[in-house]
Amino acid sequence: MRNIAQRHKIILNELEKKGFVRVQDLSKKLDVSEVTIRKDLKELEERRLLYRNHGSASQLSSLINDRHIDEKAKVQVEEKARIADAANLLLEKNDRIIIASGTTLLRFAQQMTFAEPLTVITSSVKVSLTLSYKPNIDIIQLGGIMRKSSASVIGPHAEYFLKDLTCNKLFISVDGIDLDFGLTTSNLDEAYLNKFMIKAAQEVIVLADSSKFGKRGFGKICDMHQIHRIITDKNASPNAIAIMREKGIEVDLV
């Protein structure tokens, strides 16, 4: 049987490789009880080497800060392009969709080749400007307080407008996906607006590259069971993909 130091080393190595580990999986791998693994995770958390969740653990570096949209647009560029192409395949004639804010969603708008009639409601000013050149798309720009770092609106005006809508699909991007905690973003007001978007949509589709897994933003958007589909890149952890599919979420790898 491995001693405590050996178990801790293996746990941290698994976490570094996968970004997210489950108590059940570690118990099988190390051939010890789940109670022992929970004690190990608690000790590692106290040493500030990981972040413990219910039944799992993620990397301590999972907490993220807000960054400007122009800065985020330079990261994971190829992955975002593939995700945007896959999202385009989900559009249907006369869809009424919501597009939230974020660089992946902006790329989705930029690459939108759908030629049938479509109505888009969006909080993103950049998405509205991009789609304004496409004659088949009717655009409803939500109003409110401008959040400069994301070039999008937040606040009660946008929230109130969404209360009276029912849309086919919501395309949303996030700053963090924690398989226990849920979806998060770095801005609390944006997270609150996203909640109204989710209530207005029949289907919630998350566009997020693999770097978002195992991370948390400041504001929680929703639990994992509230989303229907995730489109991500092939670098996503197989462990995370398996867990999401177990939860009944459709996962598209591009």
Rank of each mutant, 00 (worst) to 15 (best):
H157M: 13
G144I: 00
I241Q: 14
F161I: 08
S128L: 10
I4F: 10
L91P: 09
N3C: 07
E246A: 15
S101C: 10
Q110P: 03
R107P: 10
R147Y: 11
K29V: 00
H8S: 04
E79L: 04
N13P: 03
A158I: 02
R229T: 14
K80T: 01
L90R: 13
Q6L: 07
R96Y: 06
L165K: 14
L193S: 06
Q226S: 14
F218L: 14
M1Q: 03
D223I: 07
C167H: 05
K163R: 15
I64F: 05
T184L: 05
F20M: 06
K134G: 02
K17M: 08
C167Q: 00
S62D: 07
V75L: 05
E16N: 11
R47H: 07
A100N: 13
A73K: 12
I172G: 06
L89N: 15
L90D: 02
L188C: 12
T166A: 10
S186P: 02
F171Q: 02
R7I: 02
S128N: 04
I172N: 06
C167D: 00
I97S: 04
L106I: 01
T36R: 13
K80F: 01
A84I: 07
S124D: 10
M244W: 12
L183I: 05
V32H: 07
I10P: 04
I98E: 09
D70M: 06
I97V: 09
A201G: 08
Q226N: 12
K134E: 02
S173K: 01
I241L: 14
C222R: 02
I231K: 03
T113D: 12
E45N: 07
A109M: 03
L89H: 14
H157A: 15
V23R: 09
I140Y: 09
V125T: 11
L50N: 04
D189T: 10
G214K: 08
N239W: 02
H225Y: 13
K148N: 11
H68K: 14
Q141F: 06
L179H: 06
T36C: 04
D25W: 00
G55I: 11
K42D: 15
Q202P: 00
K29M: 08
T166L: 11
S123M: 13
N53Q: 13
R22L: 14
K169W: 08
S152W: 08
I221N: 03
S237A: 12
I10C: 00
L12E: 03
L90F: 10
K247V: 12
N53P: 02
Y192Q: 12
T36P: 12
N194R: 03
N13V: 00
V75E: 11
G176I: 05
I227L: 15
S173V: 00
L142W: 03
Q76S: 10
N168F: 01
E246D: 14
Q24Y: 02
V35P: 00
I249S: 00
L105V: 10
